[in-house]
Simulated assay, not measured.
Amino acid sequence: MLIGYVRVSTDDQNLNLQKDALIKYGVDERNIFSDKTSGSKDKRVGLDKAIEFLKNGDTLVVWKLDRLGRSLAHLIDVITNLKNRNVSFVSITEGMDTTTASGELFFHIFGALAQFERSLIQERVKAGLESAKLRGIRGG
Score class of each variant (00 low, 15 high):
D28A: 11
G140N: 01
S9P: 07
S119Y: 00
D97G: 04
T80M: 03
Q122A: 01
N16V: 02
G46S: 02
Q122G: 01
T93C: 03
I121L: 04
K126A: 10
R30V: 13
S40K: 10
T98W: 11
V8I: 12
R70G: 09
N84S: 08
G111E: 05
G4V: 11
V27E: 11
H108W: 08
F107V: 06
A50M: 06
I109F: 14
S71E: 15
I92V: 04
L68S: 15
G139M: 08
V45H: 09
T98C: 10
N81P: 09
D58E: 13
T80D: 05
I79C: 10
S131A: 05
S40L: 06
G57V: 12
M1H: 14
L17A: 05
I121M: 06
E52P: 00
G69K: 14
I79E: 09
G95W: 08
L82D: 13
F116V: 11
Q13D: 05
E123V: 03
S119A: 01
D35Y: 03
R85H: 13
E29H: 10
G103K: 08
E52L: 03
F33W: 07
T59P: 02
M1S: 14
R7K: 04
Y25E: 00
L15C: 05
I3T: 15
L2V: 07
G128F: 04
H108A: 10
G39F: 02
K41M: 09
S9N: 00
Q13I: 03
S34F: 02
A112Q: 12
R124V: 04
A101V: 11
L129P: 02
E117S: 14
L120V: 09
I121W: 02
V78L: 15
K41A: 02
I32L: 03
S38R: 08
L47A: 04
I23Q: 03
F107E: 00
K49I: 02
G69F: 12
V125A: 10
I79R: 08
G140S: 05
S91P: 00
T10M: 00
L65M: 12
I51N: 01
A73M: 15
L75Y: 11
